[in-house]
Design a protein around this nucleic acid. Structure first.
Lengths: 294, 294
DNA sequence: GCCATTGTCTGACCTTAGTCAGACGATCAC
DNA sequence: GTGATCGTCTGACTAAGGTCAGACAATGGC
């Protein structure tokens, strides 16, 4: 079974590398070599403020020296504009110039043409099947390659994730975190607590934290999955990961609370072996309480 | 609609290049750079006779000088054995040595591990969804990138395709081509006839020919699609292509015959606008006759 | 037997991609 | 204010990937 999955992935890899990869390289190479083209493409994805060099480095996974050189070549061609970030003058912000946007648009068109020419020989029904299959594969490959990492709850990624979390429950239940946020953050560090963020392309797509309850049990809090990512099994994976770390830290009981309208979350907790218990805290927003013995 | 297909393809491309492509490169690079590794891999796909240099060049799409150099480096490492082909001493046949097979196997294992590690974070159900999606995408991408080209009916690819065709109808209907094969081949060249082969990875996966009937109509013959490729729309595409060329050559009527057990073929002809007519030839194997006005 | 063609190889050459060590200014913690 | 750290850049270097023109032997067509 496992072998069959691997075999399919490998077969697909071969097909992809030969048929699309080759085309892809040629499409990006409109006069410019691949490196600069990819960079141009990536810069164009940023908002009006542009991107910092560091962001680009992470998104593209490039060496700092190499990236710097690539930027210089784009700058020499008048395609980008690099200037210090006013809030931190060590950082530099990169933005497309007018010419850069034009070049980027041309690249975009070439890429679009390429994609169209790939599906052109197919019938409409086949095209739909292919599109559906690729969309599924895309979602799952992204989900499979999400990075789970323990970071400080005050790390920008954590803050972004928790802000999204609070915005969401604020909208749904009128919940307002107030100052509790900061106190909690502190509890989720040190020897007893921790915080985990799942990132994809450097963006936080899920998070969850653990702190110690007065009676010595661990409590999972702030568990959140980005709306676009629900249904990809990310929640279950994150939960599993949190439990693994909790176990390593010597806990043997985990508790958590949730609202009774979050049916999918409740179902997931139950599938993961949690059972309902009595109210163990005074969280006004919570309606259901769960516990699991590790 | 069309834009949605292209957008999905592009989105997938981006995901693929970032997540799998990068890993893929690293996996193949076991000490050896990518080029030699891919070559090693490709040589290992051939049968015991090995592959000719030309075959490898086509399958990998490499420059002849470059390939020659790559071969030399593998040869220097004692991984392959290159010697003249006894039937045509201009050609050279490449075969893996014992060490080559070992190296190739190691590569294979790494690739397998990589594929497994990609799907590892997913649940079994997700793995199945991914596998299914990739298999579908694989088939359709292959189908979309099949090359249709007009070649002589005596070209090795044509001969291979027709041999497969005759073997198949021989098995199903006890049909024996006898000498008719050669005469027909001649009719499918020159100004009045032609022969088209569809190839994928250099292998013939479908074929079809056209010759002129005594009354001036065109007749499609030897239309065949490889068993593994049925259901991918290749037959319809080939038929459309043949019709296009037929029209260019100034014909305005096309006819063809088939056996009544080939239900799928018949359905395809009907979908393509062919209508049944009376027997117009003395082909003992035929039970149905069709015509289409272009 | 001759000439054109085919199949492969060699040498010379070029671009792209990427690494590494260190320089240098800006910022942060105290 | 100072030392540590951060963020970016520069210079020097290397390997990989690839192109092109021609050499040369084997083969096929006539």
């Amino acid at each position: 079974m496992a072998d069959q999955h691997a075999a399919t992935v490998r077969r697909f890899n071969r097909t992809y590398t030969q048929r699309i990869g080759a085309l892809d390289d040629s499409f990006l190479g409109t006069g410019r070599p691949l490196g600069p083209s990819r960079l141009l493409f990536e810069i164009g994805l940023s908002d009006d403020d542009g991107a910092t060099v560091r962001e680009l480095r992470e998104r593209l996974g490039l060496d700092s020296g190499y990236l710097s050189r690539l930027l210089r070549s784009l700058e020499a061609d008048g395609l980008v504009d690099v200037r210090p970030d006013p809030t931190d003058r060590r950082r530099r912000r990169v933005r497309l110039t007018g010419r850069g946007r034009t070049a980027r648009r041309r690249l975009d068109e070439r890429s679009e043409d390429l994609a169209r020419s790939l599906v052109a020989p197919l019938s409409e029904r086949q095209r739909e099947r292919l599109t559906e299959a690729l969309a599924t594969a895309d979602l799952l490959v992204r989900a499979a390659t999400v990075q789970l990492q323990e970071v400080s709850p005050t790390d920008p990624r954590s803050v972004a994730a928790m802000a999204a979390y609070f915005a969401e429950i604020g909208e749904r239940f009128g919940f307002e975190p107030g100052d509790a946020w900061l106190e909690d953050a502190e509890a989720m560090t040190g020897p007893d607590g921790f915080f985990v963020v799942a990132t994809s392309d450097g963006e936080a797509v899920a998070c969850g934290g653990v702190h110690r309850l007065p009676d010595g049990a661990a409590e999972i809090k702030r568990m959140w999955v980005h709306g676009d990512w629900r249904g990809a099994g990310l929640g279950a994976r994150l939960l599993r990961h949190l439990e693994d770390v909790v176990r390593d830290r010597g806990y043997d009981v985990v508790r958590l609370d949730t609202n009774d309208t979050l049916l999918e979350a409740i179902a997931m907790y139950e599938r993961a072996g949690y059972h309902a218990i009595e109210r163990y805290n005074d969280n006004p927003w919570a309606r259901r309480w769960f516990e699991k013995t590790l």
